[in-house]
Computed example of a mutant assay.
Amino acid sequence: MNILQEIFTDHYEEIKYTLHPRPAEMENIDKMINCGDPSYGGAMYGCIHCGNLKFVPFRCHSRFCPTCGNKYSMDRTTSMSFKLVNVRHRHCVFTIDASLRDFFLQDRSLLNCLFHSVSSVVLRLFSKMNKHKNFTPGFIMVLHTFGRDLKWNPHIHCLISEGGYSDDAFWRNVSHFNYTFLRNAFRTALLKEMLLRIGPSFKKVSARCYLEHEHGFYVYAKPNRCDPKTVTKYIGRYLGRPVIATSRVDSYTGDLVSFHYNRHEDDQYVQETIPVMDFIKRLIRHIPEKHFKMIRYGGLYARHRSIDKKLHLAISKEKRHTFRCFNRWRTAILSSFGYDPLICPHCKQQMVILEIYHNHRRVPLEELYEKAMSRSRGKRSSA
């Protein structure tokens, strides 16, 4: 068990009957707690040269799990890397006023408004930059609902190509983004969309936001522009990663949890100690509803037209070999930790899969090893 599994296991009944979690929260908690439990199935590997056995349990594949969430982030980074065209990209962060955050917490369907607003603003930005041709950029939006202190803070990370592709197959590079327009347009688009969804009761909040944010909501952009390979690795840290890494949890006493982070404003190291149920509430509120898409593609990257394929063939050749098979468990371990998990530690030969056990057949580990040993002996004799 890692420390998060220990915390949630110890307080499972209290979570279930006092916090009244959403079905999506409870489902991900159950998955995370049982992640890596051999009784839920796995694969038995064996070395046909020396008979060494290795049992690899199945994982939960939940983004809430610190192990599987990182794996999910790797997979999404791989998928994104093959989608990006080989041009510079700008990383922008669209933030909202603190008074609006609770609206998204109480009604999670409003999170769609964030995506719609960012998408419309980016497309309008490029539309204003060209009057004669319809240049369309490629952009990817990633929703984050948490800050470094784990509090509820929904915002959008957006990766935008520094250029657009016209309908007559012409690419135009763009090096200057109008951030004044982005700030004002994003504020207006989001408040209008929320007013339509919430109704007249939102008018006072909307008017106050216009008064307090005369120059629009804050839109942050990385000053350095990077090539697709570099920027994909950078934004990969935001793609479906777990709310908190186990390395950031410093201690757990049963009643209190201590964790640390570097404050975003000044990068100062901060350690916080809070009651364990408050810690759990901060974590589970960031679990999205089932089937809710936290990563969305817009503009050029959302289109699937034959004319766009020519663009990818023309300016995407270099990045096609950036990542290979990164979504496989074995390759992911090799890339992350520098060792091959299926190389026998005794004779340095490659291990082979002997048998797969599923969760509907609960088999004691002793029986698994006995069956695997018999199959390993058979393979060695046939070899």
Rank of each mutant, 00 (worst) to 15 (best):
I353V: 12
L182Q: 03
I33M: 04
G147Q: 05
L283M: 06
D10G: 09
I356F: 07
K309T: 14
F139E: 05
L19Y: 09
T136L: 15
V219A: 08
E265Q: 11
A302D: 01
N224Y: 15
M277R: 05
G138V: 03
I156W: 06
F177G: 01
F94C: 02
I315Y: 07
S81R: 07
R187F: 07
F202R: 04
T322A: 10
L300N: 03
V142I: 09
I3Y: 05
S335H: 13
D168F: 05
P275D: 00
R361K: 13
Q271N: 06
G42R: 04
M141R: 01
Y72C: 11
K371I: 11
H286D: 01
Y252T: 00
P341D: 08
C92R: 03
N178P: 10
S206D: 12
S120D: 11
F186V: 07
G36P: 03
F217C: 02
Y40S: 11
L53V: 10
S247A: 15
Y17A: 14
E25T: 04
P228Y: 04
C65D: 03
E6D: 14
N153W: 01
L4I: 11
L365M: 14
P228A: 07
R328C: 12
K293R: 15
G240Y: 06
R101P: 08
C347V: 06
K290Q: 15
C344Y: 05
T273A: 11
R285E: 10
S306C: 09
L143S: 00
P228W: 00
L4E: 03
E214N: 13
C92W: 00
D266T: 08
V118M: 06
A207C: 09
P341A: 00
I235G: 02
E265T: 08
T145W: 05
N2S: 08
R296Y: 02
S175I: 12
F103P: 09
H291R: 12
D227S: 13
G240C: 07
K281A: 13
I160T: 04
G42D: 02
D308H: 10
H358D: 09
R59M: 13
I244S: 02
K229V: 09
S316E: 05
